[in-house]
Write a protein that binds this DNA or RNA. Structure first.
Lengths: 240, 240
DNA sequence: CCTGTACTTCGACACAGGCCGAAATAGGTG
DNA sequence: CACCTATTTCGGCCTGTGTCGAAGTACAGG
């Protein structure tokens, strides 16, 4: 087959710790400047420049130039999913008993996956939406039911305005621990955006960790009849 | 996070065309000897030995020693799924119009994915099993229904003998083209084994391509009420 | 204009890793 | 035992690539 070298090229981009650090830092969905990413990966600006060049060329990242800055981000959902899977595999293979790590647990609980929520919390939400018949699995494709369309539209989501009404579930975005799905696609994106905007949830600085606020817990129960087990709020560090 | 270097190590294993060739050759689920794999990747035995050593050390492959031979195979389903995803991503990114390739089309149609069937055909089968209520999506986990247990047991499948009765769907094993699931897990494995044994299907030599026999088509319809669109039988080359 | 900041390019060095010839080990066969 | 085959180890060559210092480009702001 002719695909071998192409696969190898893609894997090569992720075969260097510094580049992986860069990509991981962007998994929060945020944009970051070259200098920022250099700090993140603990390398000089020159070295970062070369890595970033490779990543952009290889379509792993994309860039937006603004003035003297260059803002990088993950190029697309498929790449984000690949990273997520690689990370999951490594987490399982890598260490036997690294459970002590607080950030690791917080990350498992709730995190950003490129443009939507992931982690146990997100899996929970999807389950409850399904139980409420807002979403339905039709022939392997997750779709909004009539009731779902009505409800989410009332909340401000506009399914017709989005690119694809159909693909609402992130099919390969598995949780590291549980082998379960969480909600992605246009609805997943809208939900996260909306929750952040209304301060139901907040991204912790410099990480993919998401914290659901007190207000968020209450509102989720009131507006969506969703009950989540509260997070241990100990993921408190904010510094780099 | 501490995962970056681990992810990089895993990716590094797949960052060399020869190693990818080796792993791809094993995606048929078959075991192969070191010499065989060297031929497959078009490298000398010494070089292959070094690559194989890395792959085994990195838990991508596992080995079975028998006499003077060493038989290699993919170490597990999760690795196979990773390869499948990488291949899918590369197939999309790589080329714009490579449709001319016959083998490529045959591969899309029906192939082995480590220990079960994949491709349009496999997706079709899963759909029809679900339509017949033999399988059911319960809360994101695909499970056998009572009717399904009865039927498949009658055919020779023993769900209790297998490790996990629950996990029947290959959740991240997506078709390259269609973003759909196909049947994996213990049932998926049994189905493929059974079909090969009864000559309803055959693996083409030296490839992952699977061909459904005439007999298979008829039997599938008769015994499982499954109708498949027949394959163009042009994937005829058998040589390396 | 000059100055500061963001970023890239160049150049040189060093190290890692792929490669194969040659030789060694290991198992199988007669 | 000799002889064959499968596989690994060793040694040396060579290419690729990560690294950073230094210099160069690009943009913003006084």
């Amino acid at each position: 087959m002719y695909l071998e070298p192409i696969v190898a090229d893609l894997a090569k981009l992720l075969s260097h710790p510094a580049r992986v650090s860069i990509v991981m830092a962007l998994m929060s969905g945020r944009e970051m400047t070259a200098t920022n990413l250099a700090l993140e990966a603990d390398i000089t600006a020159q070295t970062a420049s070369s890595h970033l060049d490779k990543l952009v060329r290889g379509k792993v990242l994309s860039v937006r130039k603004s003035g003297q800055y260059r803002y990088f981000r993950i190029s697309g959902r498929d790449i984000a999913e690949l990273i997520e899977i690689l990370q999951g595999l490594s987490a399982r293979q890598g260490h036997p008993t690294e459970d002590s790590d607080n950030r690791y647990l917080a990350l498992k609980k709730a995190r950003v996956c490129y443009d939507h929520l992931a982690g146990e919390l997100a899996v929970d939400m999807l389950d409850q939406f399904k139980a409420q018949q807002l979403l339905e699995d039709r022939n392997g494709v997750l779709e909004l039911t009539a009731a779902g369309i009505t409800l989410f539209r009332k909340k401000g989501y506009n399914p017709d305005a989005e690119d694809d009404t159909q693909q609402l579930a992130c099919k390969n975005c598995l949780d590291w621990s549980e082998q379960r799905f969480h909600l992605a696609g246009s609805l997943g994106r809208w939900i996260m955006t909306d929750m952040l905007q209304r301060r139901w949830a907040e991204k912790l600085p410099d990480s993919r960790i998401v914290r659901i606020t007190e207000r968020g817990l209450k509102k989720l129960e009131k507006e969506y009849s969703i009950r989540l087990s509260p997070q241990p709020s100990e993921a408190s560090e904010s510094g780099a």
